[in-house]
Structure formats: structure tokens, C-alpha cells
Amino acid sequence: MTTVLAVANQKGGVAKTTTVASLGAALAGLGRKVLVVDLDPQGCLTFSLGHNPDRLETSVHDVLTGQLPLRDVVLDTDEGFALVPATIDLAGAEAVLLMRPGREFTLKRALATLDDDYDVVLVDCPPSLGVLTLNGLTAANAVLVPLQCETLAHRGVGQLLRTVTEVQQITNPDLTLLGALPTLYDARTTHSRDVLSDVADRYDLPVLAPPIPRTVRFAEASASGATVLAGRGNKGAQAYRELAGNLVAHWDDGADLRTFTAAE
């Protein structure tokens, strides 16, 4: 069975797209057949994987509006996994979907046509709680929340968790909340640890380990059209590989996900 993981946070700048790309590469490195879906009209995931959104003739927009089947828009990447790209046209898809009954199930129906061709589907939700994010959450088995380790980073987390609860009650009762993934983490400061402790206590939300460290490697990788795992070994790549291993053990064997401690 295909596992669909939505990566969501309505706050921008939390390394959400970096997480989808890097985790996809790490899972592919473990032998998983991976598909990533770009649901952000800005197309940052698409661009970071070496495809120019301005030059694409088809995208996830055509799938969500019923013009093309999902298989017809899938692209290959140099990272060993497949991509459903996004373009600015996706900004108009929300208006189209709002007029349709069952609009929250559009992506789920599209993914069902793949007949388990992939082991894992990662959905990069846009930085909002609109109909595109609802599609991602409704299609998913689980949701992961990247969380920047800085003051006020948790603003909006409560709203996102309420949205997850509503999705569980209305469109996807099987959706599970894996927890928050610490990003842009600086182990040299107590501030990062304090933010994560506050989030865990305030929202009773599991904080996953390992935390993803702040490193310039991520920006360099995105600019080159590759993930951080494509370069030489670094702490960021190591963290995502470890996270991927934890997730595979959780999905395959039911192992508990490793959670963050102040000693990280």
C-alpha cells in the first residue's frame, strides 16, 4: 500500500519544501519508489528539483481541474524519484475547486489512479489553509509539520492542528499527526531547545528527531536544482537520512518514532 505523507504549515520559511525534497531523496536512497507532489502555486519544489515552472506545459493544475490524468504530468528528477510539478496556474485552481462538490477529495481521487505504483507520496502543501492544503490533508495517511526553531515560530500551529482535527472529523478519519519536525535548528543555543519545549508542552505535540540543522547547504542545493543529499556529506543530509530511516521503520515495523530531547 502507498503511504501518503502531507508536509504542511501555513507559515512560510519553515523549510517545508526543503523537507519534501530532501526526505524524498533520502527515502529513494533507501530503495523506496517515491513521488513528490508540488501543491504550491509558487512552484518552489518544482524549481528546486531542476524544472522551470515557467516553461512547463502541464502541471498538477491540469490534474486538479480534470483536464489530464495524474500519470500524464509526472516528471523524472535527477534525485531518483518522480515529481508532479506546479506552476502559477495552480493559483486559479482554488477558485475552480471551490465551485465543485467534494472538492477536498480531488487529489485523493487522482492519486488512487496510480494503482500503488509508488511506495511513498510526499505532498508539499502551500503556506495556507485553503482548499489546496485541505486536498493534501484529505489525501494523506499522515501529516508532518516542519517548525522553525525561532521565537514566534509556533504562531499558527494551533490553527493548523484545529484544521487537522476538522479534516479527521469530516473528510479523512484515518489521518494521523506524526508531529512537528524541528528545522533551522542551532544546537549551540538554548533558544532553539526552549522553542521546541514550549511547542511540545503548549500543544501536546510530538517533536520528532533528529532536528534539521541550520546550514547554508540547503540554499546552495536549491539554487543548483538538486537536493542537499546530492552533494558531499553534511549534517543536513545526515539528519534527513536518519529521519527517513525512522519513518521507514515506523511504517514497515510499527516502530515508535524517535522524539526530540534537550540533549540533541
Rank of each mutant, 00 (worst) to 15 (best):
V63F: 04
T65Q: 05
G66D: 00
Q67W: 07
P69E: 04
L70H: 07
D72H: 04
V73I: 12
L75P: 02
L83N: 03
L83M: 13
V84W: 00
A86P: 09
T87S: 08
I88Q: 03
I88D: 13
D89H: 09
D89N: 12
R103T: 09
R103K: 14
E104R: 05
F105Y: 14
A112H: 10
A112C: 04
D115C: 03
L122K: 11
C125H: 14
P126D: 13
S128P: 11
S128D: 11
L137F: 08
T138H: 06
T138A: 10
A140N: 06
A142W: 06
V143R: 07
V145W: 09
C149A: 13
T151E: 13
A153K: 05
H154Q: 07
G158W: 12
Q159M: 02
L160R: 09
V164S: 02
V164Y: 07
T165R: 15
T165A: 14
T165W: 15
Q168Y: 00
Q168T: 02
Q169F: 00
Q169D: 08
P173Y: 08
L175Q: 04
T183K: 04
A187S: 14
R188W: 03
T190D: 13
S197L: 14
A200C: 13
R202H: 12
R202Q: 01
R202Y: 10
L205G: 02
V207G: 03
